[in-house]
Amino acid sequence: MYRWAMVIDLDRCTGCQACVVACRQENNIPFAGEKQAKLGRAKFWMNMIREIEGDYPDLKMHFIPIPCMQCDNPPCTIVCPVRATYKNPEGIVAQVYPRCIGVRMCISNCPYTVRYFNWHAPDWPNEYKRGRNPDVYKRRKGITEKCNFCIHRIRKAKEVAKKEKRRIRDGEVVPACAETCPTDAITFGDLNDPKSRVYLLSKSPRAFRLMEELGTEPRVFYLKQGEWKDG
């Protein structure tokens, strides 16, 4: 059994947002367009958050990439009346699109606000449609979606591993965001494997998780020098 997890090194991250675009391209997430974006209808499974502290001339600015934290006890799943979202055995909080009826209680109960709703039927200009990834499932209007650790890539790796009768190797599954990250800030892997990079990094003294106080037990770890302030 695997336990997928992600580590994001904020000391490396430069807020370039390559992960953001990579995620959208990989998971067929249409852009919202100016009007819709202003109304908050842009979907960013990987979302970029900025924090500014201080005033000119001594100020700090941090960028924090926010995927779904795949919480170990996710507030989002228990509130779904029809169990359209659930914690799968490998720790991924999966979204069952066909089951979702769009109550959006999961959205309001996700403290990290990383769940996104299809306010309209997801659509593209025809030209872009050719560039869609066949591995990810279609979404329709009126349902919720979110980062799923590129579950389709994991599945592919599993098939290969199964054929070769072995476990997936460390670094064999790489989500789109991690794959493109220019500064190597994102690491992905299996927490059950004590030799994996994520495992080691997650034990680093720099490691922390967002809003630990909520007890959601996120499985996305962040690395940052020194004290961390959120909010």
Binding site: R104, M105, I143
Partner: peptide
Amino acid sequence: DLGRSIRFYWVPLHAQFKSPLI
């Protein structure tokens, strides 16, 4: 408010009793 109003009957059908909505 439902994204897919037509499917409202799924609430009793697939009920997850942990959900306050149920």
